[in-house]
């Protein structure tokens, strides 16, 4: 989706001194909104704190600073607003764990009825607040096509409550309630849900996935979403050093490897059809991704679980085929999903 005009240093880096300022990322600007500012109490290397700033700063840029935000209960809400210190520099409201999309819908309705049509609404939640407890409200917001960009920061579990499984926790991951006991694989295979596809089934104007590893892709998607009206959904993978038992410095690398392994497909869809896929730049085996994470340590011990690694590899390979994640030789992509 992003045309690279020049081969040059830092095309994928945050900034690029060789680009015109208007072509640079929002994050490269010293004048960026810093929607969430310093002093928050997120863990070291928190992917969600990073993702939230990436998304909201881009939204702020796209809407010329005219943005209001609601935030469901979760890590992001907790670490950013302990009385008396807020980390938010944008209008922000937290209500409950399960009602973020409905609050956002109400905000959009209230703004429209008040004639504040330039003010845009962003809702945000973690995966628990999105795919589990908030799912009813999310689906309602989607089907009503409320004018909301809802962002799920997916760190694949209930991290704030001590790392329990959510419906976004991947198979074989060890969590506090999917312990590796006996032959248990960690989190079960064949369960869970991938909400971007469910969002697409609502045929809303825009659905996209992204990660904190590829800022330009993420910002492009936020910008694109903000250029539309109606219900829009962005699902951002945000690795969690705590819950994934990984080094804080590996957060972005993990997001990158999740994509490059094929385990996390990055794509866009409009009105229920996949319209673009972000290709894997250098395919890696799932091992490269899994081995960096303590939640998968049981797969690689002695004797380990090569059978489970193979099943995860099969899931990744299925994504590659299903979404057309690898450029074919003639440079075109072949997605079997959508048109």
């Amino acid at each position: 989706m992003r045309e690279t005009k020049l081969y040059q240093i830092g095309t994928f880096a945050v900034g690029n001194r060789l680009l015109d300022p208007e072509d640079r990322s929002a994050q490269a600007s010293p004048d960026r909104a810093n929607s969430i500012t310093s002093g928050h109490r997120a863990c070291q290397g928190c992917g969600e704190a990073l993702g939230a700033r990436y998304v909201l700063d881009a939204a702020m840029r796209a809407a010329d600073g005219d943005v209001v935000v609601t935030n469901s209960t979760g890590c992001l809400e907790v670490f950013s607003t302990p009385y008396p210190e807020s980390s938010w520099q944008i209008p922000w409201v937290h209500s409950l764990f399960g009602n973020g999309p409905a609050v956002a819908a109400g905000m959009a309705a209230g703004l429209r009825a008040s004639g504040r049509t330039s003010t845009r609404v962003v809702g945000q939640a973690g995966d628990g607040g999105t795919v589990d407890i908030g799912f009813g409200c999310l689906s309602g917001m989607f089907e009503r096509n409320d004018d909301v960009l809802f962002v799920c920061y997916d760190n694949q579990g209930y991290m704030n409550t001590g790392v329990q499984r959510s419906a976004a926790t991947p198979p074989a991951a060890r969590t506090a309630n999917t312990g590796v006991i006996g032959d248990e694989p960690g989190n079960a295979f064949g369960q869970g849900k991938f909400v971007p596809l469910i969002a697409m089934a609502h045929e809303i104007p825009y659905v996209a996935t992204a990660t904190v590893a590829d800022l330009h892709d993420l910002e492009d998607k936020v910008t694109r979403a903000m250029g539309m009206h109606g219900a829009r959904y962005l699902h951002v993978l945000v690795p969690c050093p705590l819950g994934w038992a990984a080094a804080p410095a590996e957060t972005i690398r993990l997001a990158r490897l999740a994509v490059e392994s094929g385990l996390f497909p990055v794509f866009e869809a409009e009105h229920g059809e996949v319209t673009a896929v972000t290709s894997i730049r250098g395919k890696v085996p799932v091992d490269d991704y899994l081995r960096l994470q303590g939640r998968y340590a049981h797969l690689f011990g002695d004797p380990g679980r090569p059978d489970l690694v193979a099943r995860l590899q099969a899931l990744a390979d299925r994504n590659v085929v299903r979404f057309g994640l690898l450029d074919s030789d003639d440079g075109t992509q072949n997605a079997s999903l959508g048109s």
């Binding site: 209500s95 409950l96 399960g98 609050v103 109400g106 309705a109 209230g110 009825a113 008040s114 409200c137």
Partner: peptide, 15 residues
Amino acid sequence: FGAMSACIGASAVGA
């Protein structure tokens, strides 16, 4: 639950 939540959002934007 959605109704009251939407009311929260609407009221929070001053409606």
